[in-house]
């Protein structure tokens, strides 16, 4: 009798295999946790991979200080309930300089508070391998990203100098100072992620579900007024609208969509019937076509 493994079981097994390989071969691994739905799946898989042991590495969130407040609450309660060791890293220099998306624009903010902060955090703790939740289906330039992606001591990615990956054999060797970014969700699609969250009942932040939230419109997109740092124009009043978020990030950079989907199933339904792709809500992708590739070379995850 042949037992058919479902596509989610096969994806799950592949991700677990990758995580175990890193745990066995890296000296000081860390799991990067962005508090989004992909991170939620990655954390869940890590719990499975090492059970009954706890994952043999800490979880790290690079906090830009501009995340939705609800994300931060969720982060703290969720990692605590799983019994995980959470590191929160903030670029204190950036905070002192008052760097933010409103004052400095999305590019400078993301570079200082996210890209540079991540590099500094990896250096500070000496992590030699970092799991990330990126998927190959997110963007064309990611379709060719390896599962084990090598970064120079300066954290740069060289698209011409990546190692071939055959079968399920991963070469984790690296020189002193170099590090590896590992993407255990490489072969998952957005739909796989949602189906798995549904099937496994994985907790995700409430921001993914629709709720009346205070929003204002900027350049045709809706942004949530999550705290009083949001600069309102004269006489401008946030509108209360039923909105949800398809991706989570810094609240001033994350567009909301109007929706009545307030359950997970409704969200999936809406996503399946929709006609625009996931990353559209992210301000950071709206630069030139090859922007993501450029950011990756510079060390943006």
């Amino acid at each position: 009798m042949t037992k058919t493994l479902t596509h989610l079981k096969r994806l799950e097994a592949e991700s677990i295999h990758i995580m175990r390989e890193v745990a066995a071969e890296a000296e000081n691994p860390v799991m990067l946790y962005s508090v989004g739905k992909d991170s939620a799946v990655m954390l869940h898989l890590a719990m499975k991979a090492f059970y009954p042991s706890k994952p043999p590495f800490p979880v790290m969130h690079v906090d830009t200080t501009w995340k939705f407040r609800e994300m931060i609450e969720f982060r703290d309660t969720h990692t605590k309930s799983l019994g995980l060791d959470l590191i929160v890293h903030i670029n204190e220099d950036g905070v002192k300089q008052g760097i933010g998306p409103f004052s400095h624009g999305s590019q400078v903010h993301t570079d200082v508070m996210k890209t540079q902060a991540l590099k500094a955090a990896l250096d500070k703790y000496g992590f030699d391998a970092a799991f990330g939740g990126a998927r190959r289906d997110e963007e064309k330039s990611r379709a060719k990203e390896r599962i084990f992606s090598f970064r120079s001591a300066q954290h740069r990615w060289d698209p011409k100098n990546q190692r071939p990956e055959l079968w399920n054999i991963y070469n984790t060797r690296k020189a002193q100072g170099e590090s590896i970014r590992v993407f255990p969700l490489s072969n998952w699609t957005e739909l796989d992620i949602w189906q798995y969250i549904h099937l496994e009942n994985i907790p995700i932040p409430g921001l993914y579900l629709s709720k009346k939230r205070p929003v204002v419109e900027r350049d045709g997109q809706l942004f949530m007024v999550d705290d009083d740092r949001f600069p309102l124009k004269d006489g401008e009043e946030p509108m209360m609208k039923s909105v949800r978020f398809r991706t989570l990030g810094c609240y001033p950079l994350t567009g909301a969509v109007e929706s009545e989907a307030d359950t997970l199933e409704d969200v999936i339904q809406e996503m399946l019937l929709t006609t625009s792709s996931e990353r559209q809500g992210r301000v950071i992708d709206h630069d030139a076509a090859a922007s993501m590739e450029k950011k990756k070379q510079e060390g943006y995850f």
Binding site: L8, R10, Q195, E265, I268, Q269, L272
Partner: peptide, 18 residues
């Protein structure tokens, strides 16, 4: 099924092979 019965649709999708 997506529009009519999303639960049934998801259940069926979760049994897909690869």
């Amino acid at each position: 099924l997506i529009a009519e019965d999303i639960s049934a649709y998801l259940k069926a999708q979760e049994e897909k092979s690869m």
